[in-house]
Design a protein around this nucleic acid. Structure first.
Lengths: 119, 119
DNA sequence: GCGCTATTTCGATATTCGTTGAAAGATCGG
DNA sequence: CCGATCTTTCAACGAATATCGAAATAGCGC
C-alpha cells in the first residue's frame, strides 16, 4: 500500500458517520448491506449517506454491487488488512521479537507492555 | 476504545506529514526521536512540525518526554493496538473461524482470500 | 410506457483544517 | 546572569470538507 492510499483510507474513516458505517459493514462480512438498510441503521439523510458511501468507496475500503434495484455495500477486507499492515510496518525497526513484546500487549510479560523504559 | 478517540486518531493519521511521522516513530520503537531529528527527517518548518506533533499527541497516538533541552516523541503502542482492534471489532459478526478466513489473508486457503462470493 | 421504489447528483453554505513567519518560553554551559 | 540552542505559541490567510433539500437517474412490475 502506498502513502496516498493510506491517507485516503484514514481520512475516510476519520468521521463519525463513516466510522460507524465501516464498522457496521465489517461486522456484516463479505455480503454487506443495502444502502437503504444502512440508512436505517445510521439515521442519516439519503444524500448524506451517498456522500459518505462514496468517500469510503473512493478510498477503496468498501465495494458496491447491484442486486435488483438495491445497491449493496461490503467491506474490502484485503484493503483493510493492507492498511493495518501499513500502519505497523517495520514496527520498532528491529527483530520480530521485541516488536511482538512492544506492539502486542498480550505477548508482553505482565507489567511491561510498553517495552523498555529507557535506552 | 470509544468512537470519539478512534475518530481523533484516524483524523490525526490522515495527513501526509503526520502519517510519515507516525510511521517513523513506530519504526523507532519506545525510545522515539527528538523534535529536531524528526524535523530533519521530514523537512518541515518547526512551527508546522509542532502543529502536527500536537495533533498526534492530542489524539493519544504519541507521547512526549523531555531530555535536557530536547523533547522526545514516541509512539503509544497501546493506543495503536486499541485502534487496530476497534476497526476490526466483531469482524464478520460470526465465529472467529470465518473471520480469520475473511480478515486474515494468510489464514485463508489459496484463491479464497475474500471469503464466500455470495450467500 | 407508467408509476413506484431505491439511490444518486446538484448546488449553496457553514465549518474545520493546514501553513508559516515572527516572537516567546525552556534549558544548558560558562 | 548571559548567550546559545531547541521548541512552542500566536495570528492570519487560503484551501478543503460536511451538510442536506430538491430534482434526476435506474431498475421493476403491470
Amino acid at each position: 500500500m502506498e502513502a496516498g492510499e493510506a491517507i485516503g483510507a484514514l481520512g475516510a474513516l476519520a468521521h463519525e458517520a463513516r466510522l460507524k458505517l465501516f464498522r457496521l459493514l465489517v461486522q456484516q462480512g463479505p455480503d454487506g448491506l443495502s444502502a437503504g438498510a444502512i440508512a436505517q441503521a445510521l439515521e442519516v439523510p439519503p444524500s448524506s449517506l451517498t456522500f459518505h458511501l462514496q468517500q469510503l468507496q473512493h478510498a477503496g475500503l468498501i465495494a458496491r454491487r447491484r442486486v435488483g434495484r438495491q445497491l449493496f455495500y461490503a467491506t474490502d477486507f484485503a484493503v483493510m488488512n493492507e492498511l493495518m499492515a501499513y500502519l505497523t510496518e517495520n514496527c520498532c525497526g528491529r527483530g520480530a521479537t521485541l516488536c511482538a513484546a512492544v506492539c502486542d500487549p498480550a505477548a508482553a510479560p505482565a507489567g511491561n507492555r510498553r517495552g523498555p523504559s529507557a535506552a
